[in-house]
Computed example of a mutant assay.
Amino acid sequence: ITPFELIPWLLGQFSSVREVKKNIQKLNLININFSEQLPLSPLHWLVADKQESIVIESVKEGLKIYDNPVGVLTNNPNFDYQLFNLNNYRALSNSTPQNSFSEKVDLDSYSRGMGGLGLPGDLSSMSRFVRAAFTKLNSLPMQTETGSVSQFFHILGSVEQQKGLCEVTKGKYEYTIYSSCCDMDKGVYYYRTYNNSQINSVNLSHEHLDTTELISYPLRSEAQYYAVN
């Protein structure tokens, strides 16, 4: 199959990451563009269920499958290097660090959050991987669905890109078009867009899913404001 067919093929064939890992090695991705206007690009795929997460990468040697202990994925470089790069940030902490510079110098913790000094803040995919992993692994779990959804979007917000900061071609910029997540127990899909920070939801269980008809909803991409006065 082609790379742009991989996700629907996996969703249509398997019900767990374990099944994917067992069968993915039989797969061969072929070099066919979606169209002349949309040529193939190097892709990395994150596949997850309630129990585990893996990363699939297509390289010269074939398909590489990695267990994903951090549950995060960004673009290049390859995933094994992304994981190794986390070693460079092992001193990061969510608490105030101790002075290990020297016993001869009394250094003051003049601000909260100094355990995160050195956390990369640039827009490269490798830096965003580190920032997303640190944020996700240290964020507090919420006890309610609304709290969990809100926390999820705050985590993704730590690595979102704003218009004008990353030029792709002259006058065109890379930015976060949308963010989304899904409640796998209730089948509720949540999203927000660049121009509409309100969290919107689509409940899949409210539809007849055993059908060949495509079900779609208008994208709520315009800003929504709640007037308090």
Results as ranks from 00 to 15, higher is better:
Ser102Thr: 13
His154Asn: 15
Gly157Asn: 13
Trp45Cys: 02
Lys170Ser: 13
Ile65Ala: 02
Ala223Gly: 01
Leu117Lys: 01
Gln98Phe: 06
Asn87Leu: 12
Arg131Pro: 07
Ser221Met: 07
Gln198Tyr: 09
Leu219Gln: 04
Phe34Ser: 11
Lys163Asn: 04
Gly113Trp: 04
Asn203Ile: 00
Ala227Glu: 13
Ser158Pro: 00
Tyr81Glu: 12
Tyr66Glu: 08
Lys50Gly: 00
Asn94Trp: 02
Asp185Ile: 08
Ile32Pro: 00
Thr193Asp: 07
Gln151Ser: 13
Ser100His: 08
Lys136Met: 12
Leu209Asn: 13
Gly171Leu: 05
Gly118Pro: 10
Gly187Trp: 07
Val130His: 01
Gln198Glu: 10
Thr135Tyr: 04
Gly113Met: 08
Arg112Asn: 11
Asn138Pro: 01
Leu86Lys: 13
Glu36Pro: 02
Leu83Trp: 05
Ser35Lys: 02
Ser41Thr: 14
Lys186Asp: 09
Gly157Ala: 08
Gln224Tyr: 11
Asn195Gly: 15
Thr144Glu: 06
Gly164Met: 05
Gly116Pro: 00
Met126Trp: 11
Gly164Ala: 09
Leu165Ser: 12
Ser15Phe: 03
Asn196Trp: 05
Leu73Phe: 04
Gly115Arg: 01
Ser150Cys: 03
Ser125Lys: 08
Asn196Phe: 07
Asn196Arg: 04
Leu73Asp: 07
Leu43Lys: 13
Val159Met: 02
Ile24Glu: 05
Thr74His: 07
Pro141Phe: 04
Val228Ala: 07
Ile24Phe: 00
Asn28Ser: 14
Tyr178Pro: 01
Phe34Ile: 10
Ser148Gln: 12
Gln162Asp: 08
Glu167Cys: 01
Gly113Cys: 10
Ala133Lys: 04
Phe4Cys: 02
Leu10Phe: 00
Tyr81Leu: 12
Lys136Phe: 11
Leu117Met: 15
Met126Leu: 15
Gln51Thr: 10
Gln51Cys: 03
Thr96Tyr: 02
Tyr175Ser: 10
Ser93Ile: 09
Arg128Lys: 10
Pro77Met: 08
Val105Leu: 14
Leu43Thr: 15
Asn75Leu: 03
Val188Trp: 00
Glu160Tyr: 06
Ala133Pro: 06
Leu92Glu: 08
Thr169Gln: 07
Pro97Asp: 04
Val72Lys: 00
Ala223Arg: 10
Asn196Tyr: 09
Asp122Arg: 01
Ile30Glu: 09
Asn33Lys: 01
Pro218Gln: 12
Glu103Trp: 09
Gln224Gly: 00
Thr176Ser: 15
Asp210Cys: 07
Lys170Arg: 12
Asp210Val: 09
Pro42Tyr: 03
Ser221Thr: 06
Thr146Asp: 14
Ser15Gln: 09
Asn203Arg: 07
Ile7Val: 15
Ser148His: 02
Ser93Lys: 03
Asp80Trp: 02
Met184Val: 12
Ser100Asn: 09
Thr2Ile: 01
Leu209Ile: 10
Tyr194Gln: 08
Met142Ser: 15
Met184Lys: 05
Gln161Phe: 00
Pro3Phe: 00
Glu174Gly: 07
Ala133Cys: 04
Glu103Phe: 11
Leu123Phe: 14
Ala133Met: 08
Gln224Cys: 09
Val105Lys: 10
Ser35Gln: 03
Met142Ala: 15
Gly71Lys: 06
Ser95Leu: 05
Thr146His: 10
Ser124Asp: 04
Glu213Gln: 14
Tyr89Glu: 08
Val55Pro: 05
Gln51Glu: 15
Gln82Phe: 03
Thr2Met: 05
Leu204Phe: 15
Ser15Ala: 11
Leu27Pro: 02
Leu29Ile: 15
Asn75Met: 04
Tyr81Gly: 01
Ser201Asn: 12
Thr135Ser: 11
